[in-house]
């Protein structure tokens, strides 16, 4: 069944070399694209001890331990693979050279000597949720998360509002200077903000915005991409509809808000996706204008966290996963719309 589905080819019955190559490429690609993320996700559930294991295991395995009467600490359990006690599970007390002194948890009094080559640690799947809970307890994760959410949501709302208003004016009114304004906006598509880091910093500084979320929000909301995208879409809305609304006693604002905006919803959805992606992932500009750690976005916190020598990989990996999780969930739900929207507009 499955095979016939996979080997389905257009008009030809034979599964030929190109089909093999195609599937080889696709499976390799899938491993290459998803593998690293999956690997980090698995690693993020490992204890610090398991993380320092080399070679590493894929699943978050941890050596089992057991409390044995007469010993204060839990003892690691081993499976005996050869020799006299083959097949039994013993707890290790200590290692002495090539031998290990072990004990059967059922008979705590009797000590057994086993060659270290004859035993294998008994391991099982253990998820170190601790890596995650630490982030909330010891590290102000929610603060950074909230900062990121605030910037993303507010900037997106303002972006959509301002860009759609401008797009409406440029698409639906004939006024002197329209072409000039439009060309000016389009021209800035070619001048990315990275060129103007220094003077934008001055403006933000003069407005007293440094170290507030608004320093990230305001410079980003007047996107030429958004204006262009929405204008092109609004051009396809028939003018008759606007005239009909005007005959229906609608003010210009009402025409915009009740007719044009709802009808531009598909284009707005694309802009929302872009804006969320831009703001959530933005790095360089926040790095410049947000210097106090309580104002950090998730990305900045993550960067600061990895630069900090005190940081353990376990916390960092957990935080990486938490940072990519929201975007991944949104993508999993909306993947069709996202890919279609981006393919249509060809901007990012």
């Amino acid at each position: 069944m499955l095979w016939s589905f996979i080997s389905r080819t257009r008009g030809r019955n034979r599964f030929d070399l190109t089909d093999w190559l195609t599937w080889g490429y696709l499976i390799f690609g899938m491993l290459l694209m998803f593998g690293p993320v999956l690997w980090v996700a698995m690693s993020s559930f490992k204890t610090d001890a398991a993380l320092s294991e080399y070679p590493p295991s894929f699943l978050p395995l941890a050596t089992q331990t057991a409390m044995v009467k007469g010993y204060d600490k839990p003892l690691p359990l081993y499976e005996i693979t050869a020799g006299e006690h083959k097949g039994s599970v013993l707890a290790q007390i200590r290692r002495i050279g090539l031998n290990a002194q072990m004990v059967d948890p059922a008979h705590p009094d009797e000590k057994i000597n086993v060659k270290i080559g004859d035993r294998q640690p008994k391991r099982e799947l253990t998820f170190a949720w601790d890596n995650y809970s630490k982030l909330f307890k010891r590290f102000n994760f929610m603060r950074y998360f909230w900062n990121s959410v605030f910037i993303t949501v507010v900037a997106t709302v303002i972006t959509v509002l301002f860009n759609s208003m401008a797009a409406f004016a440029l698409a639906k009114y004939k006024f002197r200077g329209r072409m000039v304004v439009f060309l000016l906006i389009i021209a800035t598509l070619m001048i990315p903000p990275t060129i103007n880091l220094v003077p934008i910093y001055l403006v933000v500084n003069e407005l007293g915005l440094v170290n507030t979320p608004w320093a990230v929000i305001w410079p980003a909301v007047a996107t030429p991409t958004g204006v262009f995208l929405l204008r092109q879409y609004m051009l396809t809305i028939p003018d008759d509809l606007l005239d009909a609304a005007r005959m229906d006693h609608a003010s210009e604002w009402r025409v915009y808000w009740r007719i044009v905006l709802p009808l531009a919803a598909p284009a707005i959805a694309v802009l929302v996706i872009f804006s969320v992606m831009w703001r959530w992932n933005e790095f360089l500009w926040p790095l410049i204008v947000l210097n106090r750690s309580e104002q950090f976005t998730l990305q900045l916190a993550l960067n600061a966290f990895q630069g900090d020598l005190q940081t353990s990989w376990s916390g960092l990996l957990a935080m990486t996963i938490l940072t990519l999780l929201p975007i991944t969930i949104v993508f999993a739900i909306l993947q069709k719309n996202i890919t279609a929207g981006i393919a249509q507009s060809g901007v990012k």
């Binding site: 004016a169 009114y173 006024f175 103007n196 220094v198």
Partner: peptide, 25 residues
């Protein structure tokens, strides 16, 4: 002229954070 009212917010932000910086640069 209502079109200019619709353009105003975007142009304001544009001027402040794009056009002005290009010159200041």
């Amino acid at each position: 002229r209502i079109a200019w009212m619709f353009l105003l917010p975007n142009l304001l932000i544009f001027g402040l954070f794009t056009f002005l910086p290009i010159i200041l640069n």
